[in-house]
Simulated scan of single mutants.
Amino acid sequence: MMQIAPAEADTKAARPSGRGKVQDRVLTSLRYGLMSGLFVPGQVFSLRKLAASLGTSPMPIRESLSRLVAANALEELPNRSVRVPRLNATSLSQLFEMRTLIEGVATRVASEKVTDELLARLEQLNQSIIDAHSHGDMAEVLRANQKFHFAIYGHADSDIMMPLIESLWLRSGPTMYYSLNSPGLWDASSHVKILEAMAARAPDDARAAMVEDILKTGDYLVEKASTRSNSGPFADLGALAADDMT
């Protein structure tokens, strides 16, 4: 069973506003789970399981889910249960196009003031992704991938771009499991290009490499969604994957 780690998200706006606040901690954990791909499209949330995983009562879970529904990160079903949305091809295409625009700029800005410390951190995270992928440890792949991207975006230090990026990842994050776990789709080449461009202090090349990385996933998911009759990518596999992820 994949556990949610409450304090793992490498983001700024997603962190709790005050220590000891259970509601903030739960919301942070759920946001992190969505952004890093620990939840999958079509997955219906169990208050009992989430409460047990996060060590709290169902009440803060219910309140956090309601806030995420209001933010369009989750959707409420007619029976009042809550699930991760299944995006159709059009929505996926728009989502990943927006990611290329904003995250491309954030990468360029971060590259303009890159430090040796950041490069070392990114190298370490990318190696963690490679190692975990080779061992089939998808939980670690997802965590390290989210940290890799957000280490770059965080270095851009933009109060304008970061909330937008987080909002986009709340919607696109649940698709990460399928893209990173698809044979032959993911390798380290795009991340290596990003690292090489940043190390060379070439901001435009770094932006282009990030766009390539995002589109590799986006184009694949749009194609898969377009060839299926259901409402979103891998919707027929959602229940099976959810059993593995909860």
Score class of each variant (00 low, 15 high):
residue 57 S to L: 07
residue 45 F to Y: 10
residue 109 V to I: 03
residue 127 Q to R: 12
residue 152 I to S: 06
residue 132 A to N: 07
residue 57 S to Q: 11
residue 153 Y to M: 01
residue 149 H to F: 04
residue 79 N to Q: 08
residue 7 A to I: 13
residue 89 A to V: 07
residue 137 D to S: 13
residue 78 P to A: 08
residue 237 L to V: 09
residue 246 T to W: 13
residue 176 M to R: 02
residue 148 F to I: 00
residue 122 L to I: 01
residue 90 T to F: 13
residue 57 S to R: 06
residue 56 T to L: 03
residue 84 V to R: 05
residue 43 Q to Y: 05
residue 91 S to T: 08
residue 194 I to M: 11
residue 37 G to I: 00
residue 68 L to Q: 06
residue 64 S to N: 04
residue 121 R to W: 05
residue 160 I to W: 13
residue 122 L to Q: 02
residue 62 R to G: 09
residue 227 T to Q: 15
residue 7 A to N: 15
residue 126 N to L: 15
residue 217 T to R: 10
residue 117 E to P: 07
residue 196 E to F: 07
residue 245 M to C: 15
residue 94 Q to M: 12
residue 242 A to K: 02
residue 49 K to E: 15
residue 229 S to P: 15
residue 187 D to Q: 04
residue 192 V to N: 15
residue 40 V to A: 02
residue 198 M to R: 01
residue 201 R to G: 05
residue 192 V to I: 14
residue 88 N to V: 02
residue 52 A to P: 14
residue 10 D to M: 11
residue 162 M to S: 15
residue 101 L to E: 14
residue 174 P to K: 00
residue 200 A to P: 01
residue 236 D to Y: 12
residue 164 L to Y: 11
residue 83 R to K: 05
residue 114 V to I: 03
residue 44 V to W: 13
residue 92 L to Q: 06
residue 143 R to K: 14
residue 24 D to M: 03
residue 208 A to L: 13
residue 165 I to C: 06
residue 223 E to V: 08
residue 115 T to L: 03
residue 210 M to R: 08
residue 82 V to L: 06
residue 28 T to G: 05
residue 235 A to G: 06
residue 78 P to Y: 06
residue 33 G to H: 01
residue 207 R to V: 03
residue 84 V to L: 04
residue 241 A to G: 09
residue 189 S to G: 14
residue 65 L to T: 04
residue 4 I to V: 11
residue 171 R to N: 07
residue 49 K to Q: 15
residue 164 L to G: 12
residue 239 A to I: 13
residue 65 L to C: 04
residue 211 V to H: 13
residue 152 I to T: 07
residue 86 R to N: 12
residue 190 S to G: 12
residue 69 V to Y: 09
residue 25 R to E: 09
residue 69 V to A: 02
residue 146 Q to I: 04
residue 167 S to W: 04
residue 76 E to F: 12
residue 147 K to S: 14
residue 228 R to S: 15
residue 117 E to W: 01
residue 189 S to M: 13
residue 11 T to H: 09
residue 153 Y to G: 03
residue 198 M to S: 01
residue 131 D to C: 08
residue 30 L to T: 00
residue 43 Q to D: 06
residue 178 Y to S: 10
